[in-house]
Design a protein around this nucleic acid. Structure first.
Length: 510
RNA sequence: GGCCCGUUCGUCUAUCGGCUAGGACACAAGAUUUUCAUUCUUGAAAGACGAGUUCGACUCUCGUACGGGCUACCA
């Protein structure tokens, strides 16, 4: 009997959501949808020191932009609400106490200063201090102190934490859906803090296990940085007696810097000119970070690119809609090694997506850009202009530069092209062409093209010569689509107007 | 330092013992073209190293090297 698939994405609101986090959310989402399960968004704000206002809203907006839908969680509600750990505060202490009563955990009264001192001493002696089975009996804990003394210390308001009593020399055998069987000896692990009295909040480990259990999470899909904590998490499930419903684990490979060593960071993006976050971000202190959305990426392309960093379908297909990803996704095709992030490939994906858009799909993307430039046109005109130019687009931010000539007559003429074309007989030739165009009734590109080509042939002119001179007049630069796409879009009146303008305003070059 | 994970073209990756090692990005050359692009064709480009198992190893095992992660009263 298979239980319902329930996965969670559980970010910490300590800043904008990193694209590595987006990929983790994506894989969780794909897995959930693939198996007809639920996707939960849980906010893990148990570190009051690092909490950043606005980060939670940013995370929710990012997931929405990416098309990653949440079934339960912060902002969406659900049967296990609340989904924000700070609102679940009172839950955790009872579980910490349960562990103490069962002998799996203990109170520790060491102050941070005392621990710093111990670490410094160990370092001076060339060793690493570990709070573990070797030293815990000598430290200020409920293992050594009498029951009365512990109660007295707590009663008088001494600060305390609850630590997990990591067993000595036990091999924990674990299974990971991506890495297979993993073993670790508990003697190499330390007694992690589970709960801190200072802010009456649990640490990640306790909150995570308790909430995953309570929220009936079936699969934990998270970054590889959590693999060293897995034995602790296994032991916590055992300590609580929850091993029968313990979720399965999958640890994802990390996203690495494009060059150099280490994992991808915001600085890499700043340095190499690509975003590391889905959306533009302004921190409460005024710092900003660029985002894929604002940099001109389409959400589908962004997601498609991310999906293939660490996973592949085993076929040669590269372009995937979200639904296709859902249908193709499986954890056993996730790779084990970290993946270097490649900004160039992100651009390529976006270009592919831009090239596949229709005029109707372009219209809503174009209209805000046109309005910002003071241009009011129909959706049809807006969409068509972009559609004609889409082969040249990489990012949505290219759209205005590439299409502006459709809406704005050239104010000046590109010098290089003018020097080449606006000389000799060409101005006279253009005047004659103006007459030819004026006589055309059906200004469709097919008809215009056949008429003009016939005229060129009759007059024994060079195609390039005529077209590029006309291009100079209508576009003002050596770029753009086929000239008859331009004439059709502009219409007869505007075409003739632009020809008249260049004849009136631009002196022939010699 | 200790523990854990990993290692195929510059990069992302395919290969689940039979390989002339495939695809994509980037790069180079060529073709198409009225400009700029697009597109197409072609090219160069890889199994970290050393042992072992095997008729046969990129694929399995061990060691070494290298890379990454963790080692907080952060997540």
């Amino acid at each position: 009997m298979k239980r319902e698939v329930r996965v969670r994405f559980a970010p910490s609101p300590t800043g904008p959501l990193h694209i590595g986090g987006v990929r983790t959310a994506l894989y969780n989402y794909l897995f959930a949808r693939r198996h007809g399960g639920k996707m939960i968004l849980r906010i893990e704000d148990t570190d009051s020191q690092r909490f950043v206002p606005g980060a939670e809203e940013y995370i929710i907006e990012s997931l929405k932009w990416c098309g990653i839908e949440i079934d339960e969680g912060v902002g969406f509600g659900g049967p296990h609400a609340p989904y924000r750990q700070s609102e679940r505060k009172e839950i955790y202490l009872q579980y910490a106490k349960q562990l103490i009563d069962a002998g799996w955990a203990y109170y520790a009264f060491d102050t941070p200063e005392e621990l710093d001192k111990l670490r410094a001493e160990a370092e001076a002696a060339g060793k690493t201090f570990a709070y573990n089975y070797e030293v815990r009996e000598q430290l200020t804990t409920s293992l050594r102190l009498s029951k009365e003394e512990v109660e007295e210390r707590i009663a008088r308001g001494d600060q305390w934490v609850v630590r997990f009593k990591m067993p000595e020399n036990e091999v924990v055998k674990m299974d990971d859906l991506i890495r297979g069987h993993v073993e670790m000896n508990t003697s190499t692990l330390d007694d992690k803090v589970l709960y801190k009295s200072a802010d009456a909040l649990p640490t990640y480990h306790l909150a995570n296990i308790v909430d995953d259990h309570l929220m009936e999470v079936s699969h934990v899909i998270r970054g590889e940085e959590w693999l060293p904590s897995l034995p602790l998490h296994y032991l916590l499930y055992r300590a609580f007696g929850w091993t029968d419903t313990q979720p399965e684990f999958a640890h994802l490979p990390l996203l690495l810097k494009p060059t150099g060593s280490g994992k991808l960071s915001k600085r890499d993006g700043d340095k190499m000119g690509f975003p590391v976050f889905p959306l533009f971000w302004t921190s409460p202190t005024g710092e900003t970070a660029r985002g894929y959305r604002e940099d001109g990426y389409l959400p589908g392309a962004f997601i498609n690119m991310l999906s293939l960093l660490g996973w592949n379908p085993g076929t040669e297909q590269e372009i995937f809609s979200m639904q296709e990803l859902i249908d193709a996704f499986s954890l056993d095709r996730v790779s084990k090694a970290g993946a270097r992030f490649q900004p160039d490939k992100a651009k390529w994906f976006n270009a592919q997506y831009m090239h596949s858009l229709t005029a109707e799909e372009f219209a809503p993307l174009m209209q805000p850009i046109l309005k910002a430039n003071g241009i009011e046109v129909s959706d049809e005109r807006a969409g068509k202009a972009a559609e004609i130019m889409k082969e040249r687009m990489t990012l949505t931010t290219d759209m205005w530069d590439l299409t502006s000539f459709f809406f704005v007559a050239p104010a000046e003429y590109e010098e290089k092209l003018a020097k080449k074309q606006w000389k000799g007989d060409n101005p006279t030739m253009l005047k004659e062409l103006r007459g030819v165009l004026e006589a055309i009734d059906d200004f469709s590109k097919e008809n215009t093209e056949s008429v003009v080509r016939a005229w060129i042939e009759k007059r024994e002119l060079g195609l390039g010569q005529v077209m590029n001179t006309l291009r100079l007049a209508l576009v003002g630069a050596g770029k753009g689509p086929g000239m008859f796409d331009v004439t059709e879009f502009l219409g007869k009146e505007e075409t003739l107007k632009r020809i008249d303008a260049i004849i009136a305003n631009l002196k022939p070059m010699e």
